[in-house]
Nucleic acid binder design. Structure first.
Lengths: 343, 343
DNA sequence: AAGCATAATGCAATCGATTGCAATACGCTT
DNA sequence: AAGCGTATTGCAATCGATTGCATTATGCTT
């Protein structure tokens, strides 16, 4: 029993059913040109033997692998995305959606994968299409995919100039909501912690500026502090800001919840009361945000809808349809870190 | 340029090199039966055209897909693992290690995948082997893989009775270290928050009991509280414990950092000082643990070594070698949540 | 020059599922 | 019974890379 038995092929199933291989193949696929009785018979025999067709043989013949490659794209110099709960959320949804649609999912990260995605995944028939998560700092490989007409979609921020479908949250509006909320809580001098060299963060910075201007506050460039996507970076950057005598800060908008938590830790360590002295808002609504102390006000991204859309748009594209960029709504989730009871 | 050009095949490369397809194939693989000059010539032409052999054709002929399926196994009724940073850490390492070894990684979750892993992944040649992450509550599919002789390894807790290789941290020792630390900090009555129906957590409970007994403290069954792997479950369970008049609690050992953070939130909300009144230790050392307030004492699992070992053992097995269960060392990382300065 | 050993290469079969088209079977109408 | 139309099935080719074995080429020795 320990020894792997010889794996059955379609030929074995056909023999047991007393039909040819081609009939067995068509019957298994429920092709109506085959008589219903024959179909049922073949399918039963296959089920009895837990038979699955050889996927590689099928892929070679049909020129379709029924596999999607998902690539997590980030900078070699940042460790952020790899442990970001937001990322795992969206990966889980993608995996489940692909499974439901009969596709397998290949996963890799751009950290160690310097290969040409087109030839490696698409031309060599490993995958029928690609989902790229993240934009890094404008990776040329994404442009190459688009130029080559490879079916793919990207999770990130659409600027409107891309030649490929981008799906992502309305970063600009999310940031605007967050900063408007901080202003409403009485904040006058709000720092922005995030790396605007990333398109998504750049859009959040625009929303930050929108909210400031709408309140008649002139944005100060010195309050925009490039920060990697880790709690550690948020902590160190906030410590630096306090040392740099940005002591008149009364608000922080962080480009991610991880950054926000690090910043909050630095503030509390300096005896600064959150939110009374400095209020904080993050972005993502990861599961932990409700359970840190104080709980974190944040902008919620709908990872579920995002994952579903990525899959739906890509499969539409693969099936010959069009894939369009889409902007997902965001929502402010207010919690302790920003609520000053200043009604 | 937008239109996908016809994909080159090995036959095209062979024609350009002026050799047969079999020579081209052998040359591309650097087979020494082919003259070095011929090899170099073929390889150069392939590189000039960014040529990759058709993966499905190769798999069919060689009977090897060079793909590993990674399955995240958890209960349908728990949402835990899907957003656990610990999980993403280990997935990232596995992905990178497999890439480095020339393998692709398929990812799926057991939530929506009820298929027979043997026939779906192994018999149908989608994958050469499997890595299963987690044990859930003794999933029969794992036993079936072992019985069928499918090459796989599992991340979890080894009880010593498994017929397959299990790789995981020394959960028992980790818990023992954590609880011994709490006792050293003066804790007398320590709750255990975790679901012992999971083997890993059961081992942690054994370590918890070991430490209590070593200190001459009799373990109280009422202090073991089944808790799902979420911060929310930790929060609710701790609130319940406080309501149940477990007010004489002075320590909490949580089976994961997420649970610990939820528990800490509940304590702080009740005005209970951490660690002065109740000290807390978690398990995992996720990135956030250092940045919550107070920072969380925890048991560090070496996800990097774990991911590497999972891959190494599985590939050894696939190559005809033996794969052995391995226990990884753990380490207590002490931080604010448990340090009472009670020297 | 002939013979032998070794190096290098190519032919053809193989892997297992699918599918176009031809052949066969069946049912109905005249 | 013959003819026609439709349903059902099977043959054989195909997909593209790999590899066993035969063939050819080359170099060395006698």
């Amino acid at each position: 029993m320990k020894q792997a038995a010889k794996v059955m092929t379609l030929a074995d199933i056909a023999r047991l059913a007393g039909v040819s291989e081609s009939t067995a193949s068509r019957a298994l696929r429920d092709n109506p040109v085959i008589n219903a009785q024959t179909r049922q018979k073949v399918q039963q025999i296959a089920a009895d033997h837990q038979f699955k067709v050889n996927a590689t043989a099928r892929s070679l013949r049909t020129q379709k692998s029924h596999t999607i490659a998902v690539i997590i794209l980030f900078d070699a110099k940042t460790q952020q995305a790899i442990s970001d709960p937001f990322l795992l959320d969206i990966l889980g949804v993608i995996a489940d959606e692909l499974t439901a649609k009969g596709y397998d999912m290949l996963l890799s990260t751009s950290k160690t994968t310097d290969k040409d995605w087109r030839s490696y995944y698409f031309d060599s028939k490993r995958a029928d299409g690609l989902i790229v998560i993240g934009q890094g700092e404008h990776d040329a490989r994404v442009d190459q995919l688009a130029a080559a007409g490879v079916p793919f979609v990207l999770w990130g921020a659409a600027t409107g100039t891309e030649q490929y479908p981008v799906i992502g949250s309305d970063n600009r509006q999310g940031a605007q909501l967050a900063v408007a909320h901080l202003i409403k809580q009485g904040c006058k001098r709000i720092a922005f912690l995030g790396d605007i060299r990333h398109t998504e963060i750049e859009m959040r910075y625009l929303g930050y500026q929108d909210a400031l201007r709408a309140a008649g506050i002139k944005p100060e460039p010195a309050l925009q502090l490039n920060t990697d996507f880790t709690a550690q970076a948020g902590y160190l950057q906030t410590q630096q800001a306090l040392f740099d005598q940005l002591a008149s800060l009364d608000g922080i908008f962080a480009a991610s919840d991880a950054i926000a938590m690090g910043a909050m830790k630095a503030l509390l360590e300096h005896g600064i009361k959150v939110p009374q002295q400095v209020a904080i808002v993050g972005f993502d609504d990861i599961a932990m945000s409700a359970y840190c102390t104080p709980s974190l006000t944040t902008v919620k991204q709908d990872t579920h809808a995002g994952g579903q859309l990525l899959v739906a748009e890509l499969l539409s594209r693969i099936d010959g349809g069009k894939a369009a960029s889409q902007l997902l709504p965001v929502k402010l989730v207010d919690r302790q870190s920003s609520l000053r009871n200043s009604t």
